[in-house]
């Protein structure tokens, strides 16, 4: 196992541990972004705890703010704050609310959670950096359900118009939103076609594959005019087969059976992660 795989497993482990400690939460959509977070924070982004005042740092905005626990896990592993803080998720007075808050959590660039808004902010950051001739990258993850929001499409056409080629939009296409299957609620039809027609460079990759995600980012970085949209083919609950198969897995209050499966997944990941330090 390489460092990136260990980082991925550790993000997944600590995502589960946070939610399990709290007793409920957004398991489905937190787990489906573990791989992309691993690639971004483990390999791609120019970011570390010492760089938060560096105007040349790369920036990440979690537009689908309900994936907060996965981001917190990645930030803790990167050393932005101690692991113990992860157990305070959503507790009274916590610095880790279910949706990220830039004023509470070290390493969180932007407050998100009201869907559709984070992508506009990411676009604003990317445009500001471009106007200042700072060649940093801005990355954002939107949910497939989140793309119901009209504001996303305002942001998307604006980004293409301004040729923000250092903007990367990841779509966590896990096919489900709170009330059920995305195709049943408002069929998105084809994200690749949509982003392409809006003027993005676009591709679709297996969102559980670290290699495919990284290769797509490197390909996207060759763009000099178009912003990049990488559609991640993912599954809600990704990486935990029991949760992947669970029908209602957006926000889970585990039954006894769920609890058993979650604890088994934690044990398994702990065994995988126990011996070696992650070096990212």
């Amino acid at each position: 196992m390489n460092d990136l795989e260990r980082f991925r497993d550790k993000i997944r482990l600590w995502t589960l541990k946070q939610l399990n400690h709290l007793g409920f939460g957004h398991y489905g959509g937190s787990l489906s972004i573990v791989e992309v977070l691993a690639v971004l924070y483990g390999k791609i982004m120019n970011i570390s705890p010492g760089q938060m005042n560096d105007e040349h740092r790369d920036r990440f905005v979690l537009s689908k703010g309900h994936g907060g626990p996965a981001l917190y896990a990645a930030l803790a592993i990167k050393g932005f704050f101690p692991y113990e803080m992860l157990y305070t998720l959503n507790q009274n007075g916590t610095k880790l609310p279910s949706h990220p808050d830039r004023n509470l959590t070290p390493g969180v660039e932007m407050t998100t959670g009201s869907l559709g808004q984070g992508i506009s902010v990411a676009v604003g950051i990317a445009l500001s950096q471009k106007l200042s001739n700072i060649p940093s990258y801005t990355y954002t993850i939107v949910g497939d359900g989140e793309l119901n929001e009209g504001q996303c499409w305002e942001a998307i056409q604006f980004a293409a118009h301004h040729k923000l080629h250092r903007l990367f939009v990841f779509v966590d296409d896990n096919k489900k939103q709170l009330d059920g299957w995305t195709k049943d609620i408002c069929d998105p039809i084809d994200f690749v076609e949509k982003f392409r027609s809006f003027g993005f460079w676009t591709c679709r990759v297996n969102g559980a594959s670290l290699e495919e995600i990284e290769a797509a980012i490197l390909e996207g970085k060759k763009q000099s005019k178009k912003p990049v949209a990488i559609i991640l083919d993912t599954i809600k609950g990704q990486g935990v087969p029991y949760l992947e198969q669970k029908e209602d897995n957006h926000h889970i209050r585990p039954s006894a059976e769920d609890q058993k499966a979650i604890e088994e997944a934690i044990l398994e990941l702990e065994q995988k992660c126990s011996s070696e330090e992650v070096n990212v």
């Binding site: 920036r59 676009v123 990317a126 604006f158």
Partner: peptide, 9 residues
């Protein structure tokens, strides 16, 4: 949102 992005930078 763009205004927020400018403020953040």
């Amino acid at each position: 949102g763009v205004a927020a992005g400018f403020s953040l930078t």
